[in-house]
Design a protein around this nucleic acid. Sequence first.
DNA 1: TAGGTGATCTTG
DNA 2: AAGATCACCTAT
Length: 198
Amino acid sequence: MNNKLPNSLFRGSNVVKIARKLLGSHLFTNFNDELTSGIIVEVEAYCGATDKACHAYPDKVTPRTKIMYESGGVAYVYLVYGMHHLFNIVTNAGGSADAVLIRAIEPIAGVAVMQKRRNTNQNNKLLTGGPARLTQALGINVSHNKSDLQGEHIWLTEGKHYTDKEIITSTRIGVEYAGDDALLPWRFHIKDNKYVSK
DNA sequence: TAGGTGATCTTG
DNA sequence: AAGATCACCTAT
C-alpha cells in the first residue's frame, strides 16, 4: 500500500517515545492475498540495555535476541508459553536492543479473515485485544521473525495522531519478574478504546 | 483462577 | 542433559 512508515521513524534512540508515537498507526498484513489491518491502540516499550523486563537485558546477545540489535524497522516475533506468538517492532540504530510490543489493534480491513483465523464471529477485544490475539488475527507467527517492515507481507502506514489527553500511560503487563523495572511507565494505550487488552 | 504448551536459557 | 521460566489465552 501507499505511504509505508519509513525506517527513519523506527530508528530514533528513545524506544519509549517511539512506542507512544506508534499509537494510531495502521498495521497491515497480506498473506496469500488476504489483506488485514488495524489501528494500533496499545503498545509497550522494551530496552535491552537497561530494562530487566527485556529479553536482551543486560545487553545480552543470544540466538533469540540477536534480531533486536538490528537497525529499526524489522519484526521481532517470538513464542511464549508454548503457543502464543508476540509481534514487536525493532527500534533504534544497529547495536541497541530495543523493541516495541504491539498489544492491541482496532480491526479495520479484513475483519472476516481475522474472525476466521481466530475462530470467532465476535468483533471486540476478544478478536484483536491482546498481543497473541492480534498476531493470530493478522496471521503473524514466528516464521515472520526478522521480516522487513518495508516488505510486502507486514507493514505500517501513518494514521491518526492522538492528543495527550487521549493517551493513557501505565506499567507494563506480565513483567512482574522484572522487579523495579516492572514499575516503569512504558505502556501506552488509547483511552476508552474497546479493543485495549485490559 | 488454573492449566496448557514448547522454545529458550541456565545450571550442573 | 535436565529443569525452570515465560512480554498469554481460554474455559471453568
